[in-house]
C-alpha cells in the first residue's frame, strides 16, 4: 500500500469519454505487451489482449499464473501493491491509462472492480454503500443519489430484496447479497468496464448462479472482464476466453473454440482438468 507511485494530480484533465457506445464488437479496452512486476519478480509477461464492448471476457488459468495481477493492471490497482509496477500500454478507448496526464482516481471510476470476497463497508447502510462511489466524486444531490442507487441495485438484481430496508446495515445481507451489493456499488458511477476477480469463489451454488445470470444483464451496458477458476462458469458466461499460464497469455479466442478445439496443448490439458 505504501509505495504509491506518483499519480497525476486530481486537477489533471479527465479522460476523454468515447462519444457513444456503438457496435457491439468495438474494442473498448486493449493491452499492448503489458508486463506486471512485483519488485524484480515478473508476474505477468507481455500480455496483449483486446476486450470488446458489451462482451464478457473470461481469464482462466491455474492458481498463481497472474490473472489477478493482470486484472489489477487494468484499473491501475496494481501500482498500489507493494513494489508493483508495469510496462507496456493499456488503452481505454484508445487512450493510454498509464499516460502522464491520466488521473488514476478518475480512471477507476470508468473501470470498476469487484473482488473475490464481498467487501461492503460494514458501518454503512445498504444505500450508503451503493452511493459511496458517487459521494467520493462529489455527487451528493439527494434526488440524483436516490435514482442511481435504485437503478444500480436493480442492475445488480438486488433491488427487490432490499428496497424495504435500504437503511439497514450492509452486514445484514447474506454473502451472495453482499456480493451483488458490491456489484451495485461498482456500477453506480456508471463505469465503462467492470472487472470481476473470482466474484463467486466464496459463494454457494445458488448465489453463484444468480451472479452468472446477472452477467448476461450487465454486459448489455458494460464491458466485462472476469477471472474465474471455474471452467463451467467460464464456458457458461463468457464470449471470449483467454488462458493464462505462468504469467503468459497462452491462448485467447471465442469461448466455444477454446473449450472445444483449443490450439495449445497446455490449454487443452487445463480445460480437461489434467492440471491446475
Amino acid at each position: 500500500m505504501s509505495d504509491l507511485q506518483p499519480v497525476a494530480s486530481r486537477t489533471a484533465p479527465p479522460l476523454v469519454r468515447a462519444p457513444a457506445r456503438t457496435s457491439a464488437s468495438e474494442v473498448r479496452m486493449e493491452t499492448v505487451e503489458v508486463s506486471a512486476m512485483y519488485g524484480k519478480f515478473t508476474a505477468v509477461k507481455e500480455v496483449s489482449l483486446r476486450f470488446a464492448a458489451n462482451r464478457v471476457h473470461a481469464l482462466i488459468g491455474p492458481s498463481g499464473c497472474g490473472k489477478s495481477t493482470f486484472l489489477r493492471a487494468l484499473n491501475r490497482m496494481h501500482e498500489l501493491s507493494e513494489h508493483g509496477w508495469i510496462t507496456g500500454r493499456v488503452l481505454l478507448d484508445g487512450q493510454d491509462i498509464y499516460g502522464s496526464r491520466v488521473n488514476a482516481m478518475q480512471l477507476r471510476r470508468r473501470v470498476g472492480m469487484v473482488f473475490q470476497r464481498p467487501t461492503p463497508f460494514p458501518t454503512m447502510s445498504i444505500y450508503d454503500n451503493v452511493a459511496a462511489g458517487l459521494r467520493v466524486h462529489g455527487r451528493h444531490r439527494r434526488a440524483e443519489l436516490d435514482t442511481v442507487v435504485e437503478q444500480s441495485l436493480q442492475q445488480a438484481a438486488l433491488w427487490d430484496e432490499v428496497k424495504e430496508r435500504l437503511r439497514a446495515s450492509a452486514m445484514t445481507l447474506s454473502g451472495g447479497q453482499q456480493q451483488r451489493l458490491c456489484i451495485a456499488r461498482t456500477v453506480a458511477p456508471s463505469p465503462d468496464v467492470v472487472l470481476l476477480d473470482e466474484p463467486t469463489a466464496s459463494l454457494d451454488p445458488q448465489s453463484t448462479q444468480r451472479i452468472e445470470e446477472l452477467l448476461f444483464e450487465l454486459k448489455r451496458d458494460y464491458t466485462i472482464v472476469i477471472v474465474t477458476h471455474n471452467m463451467q462458469q467460464a464456458a457458461r458466461v463468457s464470449d471470449t476466453t483467454s488462458f493464462f499460464y505462468m504469467g503468459t497469455m497462452v491462448e485467447s479466442g471465442p469461448t466455444r473454440q477454446i473449450f472445444t478445439t483449443p490450439a495449445d496443448e497446455q490449454t487443452e490439458a487445463y480445460i480437461t482438468g489434467r492440471f491446475g
Binding site: N75, M77, L80, M105, G112, F121, R185, P189
Partner: peptide, 26 residues
Amino acid sequence: PDTQREAALALGATRWEAVITAVVPY
C-alpha cells in the same frame, strides 16, 4: 483489512478519501 482500503480505492477514492470513507469508520 486491506480489502476495505482497496474497495474504496477501486471506486476512485484518493488515499485520503479511502481513509475517511472506509478505514476510520471500520
